[in-house]
Design a protein around this nucleic acid. Structure first.
Lengths: 201, 201, 201, 201
DNA sequence: GATGAATGAGATTTCATTCAT
DNA sequence: TATGAATGAAATCTCATTCAT
């Protein structure tokens, strides 16, 4: 949306500040929620002036939405990029689960931020639309596997996806609450339980 | 909805104001989040003066915590009261799922509020402790069924519970987002998929 | 101002509540200042309902003024009652100092309250007039002693009184601040220093 | 009144806002007491926005304390700076009295504010400590003059100081109450009466 | 008369946003 | 372009006063 002129100077790459702001916002939002953080604090953490934030983002709302879209997009690409739908189904599920886990582990701030609900009142239609856009390729794969008889057909694909997604999300939320500490074997076992939930017989 | 003790006068029952405040807060918090609602708005919705809120609750924080505890407690009782652990396991699971569904359907505000994450920074240790307290009886039942070989034992009980709980929560969250409309058969199918996730063979 | 019907019942003497309110107000005002005390707290300390205060006093302002006048009057009477202006001058001064000291020691709340400055914005003209009324007999005695050549005449009587009064007040204020602990000999020495300040040669 | 550092631009000197806030607060506090003034009024009088007050002072309490310390410090310096303790004793007393008078006349707001009692509940330990710090050099001078036999030794130095200080304060308080109008000769006569109070024979 | 729960105007404080430099 | 001090609308909270019982 914002033009990114190719840099003609040796100065730090254009967009550095924008990125710094987004990164700083992600960190503090993940920790204390969108409503718990004042804009000057984001600026301080990003190492820029308060006013600079408003040079890159029209308002805090816009910042939240752009951050949401950027991270949702990143998650979507991470989950969907390079997936070969003709892979063996269980291997595909393992791959999918592995990508989700890697995201949650490697980008805990982004994961936490996307999971937050207090940004919901901030989200605009474009952000909401992105939600579907990320899910659609997954949806199509689920449908295809249902038709092939791999996944059970007595449950609508959307419902199945909601179940698996929710199971995954709550698994890590539970860990973050300190109610459980997840080892690799727990995550694998959870994966297989979800696989079992999805498959037919 | 709330029982009114028989009264020979037209005077409102004792505690009505407190209940009215809690109910009003629940409704608006469920709709717009804890941070999105100013105290005078709760007062207006409850039909009381702003100051009255502070007669019953020392601060907005305290109000949020008391509301959280009241609703969590209500949910806990709803899930655990009168459960016969010697019931046939599948019937027990059906009963549990049914109670959850009924809560989500009959008390959508409470359900939504408990699910919110933006009250997390508000919650005090007592409120957090209640979380475990509600889950403990369920945990014990899961453990017992694992020992009897009904539920799979290759997954820790905490993990299994996190999966089912998350699946359920996200199912209704998805519906609220407008991504799906759940019929009774969807809910039953989801239930059976979760049952399948939990059971051994 | 408030009618005092003669009691026809064996109930606690009429005026008890009024007195209880005044006493309670005096105590808490002395401790935390007029602005630091909420009306319901005075009521609680007096053992009456909040509304009862407003039955006896039209407003907090009125209460403060009536309390001020009552205590100022009491001080005035204590200082002036039964004084024999024909006493030997030094004995008269000793008597006066002794009465002041007794008031400060026996009625510390009243003494502290009268000394407070945060009630000044509350005081009405009647209360301010009382100030003069209490001082007038003292003033007349000072003038008389000036004319008799006992007290120095090179200082106006008002000024002399202000000096002695201020010296006394600050003596006890200093003690209350914890900067000094006054023994009987300190108070007597202070008295004689003030006597010396007032006398001619 | 406040020196403005030479500036080549029309921009206000650094710290102007802070000073403007302190000056405005001093004026209104002196007039109506700390409790009688709302923060937005201080802001308006200082010509700044309400929020600006909170950029410079964490709370109204902090503002009151900083103001108290600044003015107390100023008074202390005014009283103690450049005093030559080897001056002839009476000349020293005259000088001291003159400095007090000048402060009361030139800085009536500061004088009145320091004398106020309604800021007492606000004062923190640092502010209270400053009280002693200002008095200590004076105390030492009094002690020295007692040892030299100039000031009477039958009264503790603290007591003597309390008497003189109280006499002075009440003199000007009486004037402010409209009970007397002080001419230069009144002030000089009062000074000499106090000197007489302090000296031996 | 007495009560104290209820009130809402007003106090303190926060923070998204602006704008002079 | 970048800054961060300044802003004031809006939030939280207090308390003198009222009034139904």
């Amino acid at each position: 949306m914002t033009a990114r002129p190719r840099s003609s100077k040796a100065s730090p790459a254009i967009g550095d500040k924008r990125q710094a702001i987004l990164r700083a916002a992600l960190e503090v939002f993940a920790e204390r929620g969108v409503n718990g953080v004042a804009v000057p604090e984001i600026a301080a953490r990003a190492g820029v002036g308060t006013g600079t934030i408003y040079r890159y983002f029209d308002s805090k709302d816009v910042l939240v939405n752009e951050l949401y879209r950027a991270e949702k997009q990143a998650l979507g690409e991470r989950l969907n990029r390079g997936i070969d739908p003709d892979m063996e189904p269980y291997a595909l599920f393992v791959e999918f689960w592995q990508r989700l886990t890697a995201f949650a582990r490697e980008q805990p701030h982004a994961y936490r931020f996307l999971e937050l609900q207090d940004h919901l009142p901030y989200l605009d239609p474009a952000s909401r639309a992105l939600e579907r856009q990320v899910l659609t390729p997954i949806y199509l794969r689920v449908r295809a596997l249902q038709k092939r008889g791999v996944y059970r057909s007595d449950i609508r694909a959307e419902v199945l996806m909601a179940l698996v997604w929710g199971a995954f999300v709550n698994l890590f939320k539970t860990e973050r609450q300190g109610l459980v500490l997840l080892g690799a074997e727990d995550i694998a076992a959870a994966r297989d339980a979800c696989w079992r939930m999805c498959t037919a017989s």
